[in-house]
Design a protein around this nucleic acid. Structure first.
Length: 341
DNA sequence: TAAACGTGGAC
DNA sequence: TGTCCAAGTTT
């Protein structure tokens, strides 16, 4: 089983900035564990295409884990802005500081020790152990779940079937080349064994695939129905000083967009109600930023005011400001500035 | 166990 | 426009 997949990977492996190609690995080369960890955290629930640019910028700016550990929180959060799931960035910094300060700058090599690091769960621990250290760990991400569910025709829906899939995946994980194998099975899921319209004719496991034999490959894995997304309403306040600077606020560490920069505006809920940051000639800008999060839709009404040069507060230059904010706040800022001329 | 937690691309 | 979903983790 593993041999067929590894043979396919040797020919078809995708090139990625954090990856050592199979030909080089066969000559003994291994990727920098820092690069593996950084890429794996960025790739959590995030597409390869979205991650590439962020990965390149992070590694250019912070070449070693000790450099990242020494970076100010605000700079790392700004560099992460737009990538989403901001708890990852906060945990990334915590983890970098543990590795730099307590582990002499070296990542642990075992799954169990890796699992203890902030932001490193079962998947990421297995991925780092396999890819960076060639330990025979079984990675179980969305790709592997799909590949194994089809290969073994597991009809029980996710997430209930997860542990069964993990056990089945572990049976196939080889002792040889576990790092390449982990990347190979994920590449297979990403390029051949895709969620819709899998390219079974090109699959190195087509002869062994139970779902293909039953003609149900495209129907697996089955998944539990998802809850509908409610709509929440909110207000964002755009205060502009004569020098063009904009009032911003740092959001609390915990919760949605935790630790990120944004426009003031209070909590979002069934009604758009939020006190302005201070008394001013606020006017309704007549525009609304729309954004969809994981579990709700948001409609954010923009209020604007031109305020005196002496107005106190965290006012920032517009240049580069949007880039330091999460996407929903970029939308609100662009919309508000446009409406204020 | 289930909910919270972002974003952008594909269809 | 709406839904799915992508190299998941935390609480």
């Amino acid at each position: 089983m593993a041999a067929e997949l590894l043979g396919w990977y040797d020919r078809m492996a995708r090139a990625m900035p954090w990856r050592v190609p199979p030909a080089e690995r066969l000559r003994g080369a291994r990727p920098d564990p820092y690069h593996v960890w950084l890429s794996e955290v960025m790739l959590q629930q995030t597409t390869v295409a979205a991650v590439k640019g962020y990965f390149e910028r992070f590694v250019a700016r912070w070449p070693r884990v000790s450099d990242l550990a020494a970076a100010p929180d605000a700079e790392v959060m700004a560099a992460w802005a737009g990538l989403g799931y901001y708890a990852r960035a906060r945990n990334l910094l915590r983890c970098a500081r543990v590795v730099a300060q307590e582990l002499d700058g070296r990542f642990p090599e075992t799954e169990a020790a890796l699992r203890a690091l902030p932001g490193v769960g079962p998947y990421t621990a297995a991925a780092i152990a396999a890819i960076a250290f060639d330990r025979p760990a079984t990675v179980l991400d969305g790709n592997v779940e799909r590949v194994i569910a089809r290969l073994r025709a597991v009809e029980e829906p996710l997430p209930g079937a997860k542990e069964r899939l993990r056990a089945l995946a572990a049976e196939i994980t080889p002792r040889e080349r576990p790092g390449d194998y982990a990347q190979a099975i994920m590449d297979l899921g990403a390029t051949i064994c895709t969620p819709r319209a899998p390219a079974c004719g090109l699959c190195p496991w087509r002869a062994d695939c139970a779902a293909r034999a039953l003609g149900i490959a495209a129907e697996l894995p089955r998944k539990a129905a998802k809850a509908a997304k409610p709509t929440r309403l909110g207000i964002a306040y755009l205060a502009l000083r004569p020098d063009g600077t904009v009032l911003v606020e740092r959001r609390p560490e915990k919760g949605l967009l935790g630790g990120m920069l944004g426009l003031p505006g209070g909590a979002w809920g069934a009604e758009a109600v939020a006190a302005p940051p201070f008394a001013a000639d606020w006017r309704d800008l007549g525009v609304e930023a729309r954004h969809t999060f994981t579990h709700f839709h948001l409609r954010l009404r923009l209020m604007g005011a031109r305020v005196p040069a002496v107005t106190p507060g965290d006012f920032r230059p517009r240049d580069g400001l949007a880039e330091a904010m999460p996407t929903v706040m970029r939308k609100a800022l662009a919309l508000g500035l446009g409406a204020m001329g």
